[in-house]
Write a protein that binds this DNA or RNA. Structure first.
Lengths: 209, 209
DNA sequence: TTCAATAACATAAGGTCAATATATTTATAC
DNA sequence: GTATAAATATATTGACCTTATGTTATTGAA
């Protein structure tokens, strides 16, 4: 399975934007990215166009491209959609998740006990995997696409505040509650925990911003 | 305000796909679209790439592009997300809608009384405008983007069944109930009606499919 | 009948040229 | 001399066209 240059460009630029290595509002020069990534104009352009539709890049016709800005109000807007989306995810996951998928969740959470609880990037990876597995387990690829979009937007804002954040701010504990509710087959409770978890995440960031 | 060729191509091809003039599963040839739309290869490609990210086009690398297929299960998947998304839209709209936006809704609904109730395309236009106004009134452009995506997917399936549908199947009545609840400031009730409305829409189509 | 070589075809990528928005400079009027 | 406006230079994306590459179907021989 070969991935195209356009896809490589897409993934790399997306990573740069989410981690704020390309900070919000900064100018994007096609020529610069062509050099940096050692790729042609076409794949770069396609990647940027895709990122535009994901609200990570803004294109001003014949003026320039920019990493999309992050308004203070964006956090609220992203949060209020994430809560619904991922609430739905976990509710559906309880109905549809195969036992294998629950096992995967358990395995991911087991890493929490062995890993470095003070390492930001470790905790973030864990959180992403957890949410991704649940979104996958919902068995709805349309929903999964939306989940990815909003999780990315959310994560970028997290990176904006990362220097001021404490590791214990990452609320991994609720993951265990969610998982327990899922195993018990209680979709309503699992959703409630998920909503709390996401609300906590966003409120923590808001306090530091 | 000039729109680019790529944007024109995007809008025209999207319309062709949603109205099933380009039916699900059919082959898309870049060269053919270049002739039909009298545009170059670049804008066509950009449009198709964008439509790919909206689940309307499937690109098989170096093999061909296709209008995305519609599985029977897609209706359910799209429905279950639409219900949440638009439920949230109307709930937020009740909190945030300016009085001008409520007036616009009223104006759109007034057309229902004067228009041709047996004309499918008229009713569909009305329905779209109604849902769009509410989604806009929610004051969250991230959410609005998602709304558009899922409404489009939903509408395409509607077109698949249009020949077997009766005009009275289009449940415009509930629009009035939603509007009334909105004016009364009852977000919970408005959301409940919206969910019913969307459920009704999808169940009707399912019966004919 | 099966497998390998090849031809045909479609997208992927590269590079050039064109269009346009913005900044800069220059000329003119007051 | 200064301010305003027109003209021009520059920078950046938009579009086009050519070439490369990979996939599939076909054809022919073992």
């Amino acid at each position: 399975m070969h991935s195209t240059d356009a896809d490589k460009a897409y993934r790399r630029i997306k990573e740069l934007i989410i981690t704020t290595k390309m900070p919000p509002g900064s100018v994007i020069r096609e020529a610069e990215l062509m050099e940096t990534l050692a790729l042609g104009r076409t794949p770069i352009r396609e990647a940027l166009k895709q990122l535009q539709s994901e609200n990570l890049v803004v294109v001003a016709s014949r003026r320039g491209m920019f990493v999309s800005d992050v308004a203070i109000t964006d956090l609220q807007k992203i949060y209020e959609v994430r809560v619904e989306l991922e609430g739905l995810c976990v509710r559906l996951a309880v109905e549809r998740a195969a036992s294998m998928q629950l096992q995967q969740l358990k395995k991911v959470m087991a890493r929490y006990h062995t890993g470095d609880k003070l390492n930001h990037s470790f905790l973030l990876t864990l959180d992403r995997q957890f949410h991704q597995l649940i979104a996958k387990a919902a068995g709805n690829h349309f929903l999964y696409n939306e989940f990815e979009l909003f999780y990315n937007l959310s994560q970028r804002i997290w990176y904006l505040a990362v220097d001021r954040l404490n590791p214990q701010d990452v609320d991994i504990e609720t993951h265990f509650k969610i998982l327990a509710a899922m195993k018990a087959g209680d979709g309503v409770l699992a959703e409630q925990y998920m909503r709390e978890h996401i609300r906590h995440f966003h409120q923590t960031i808001r306090n530091y911003l």
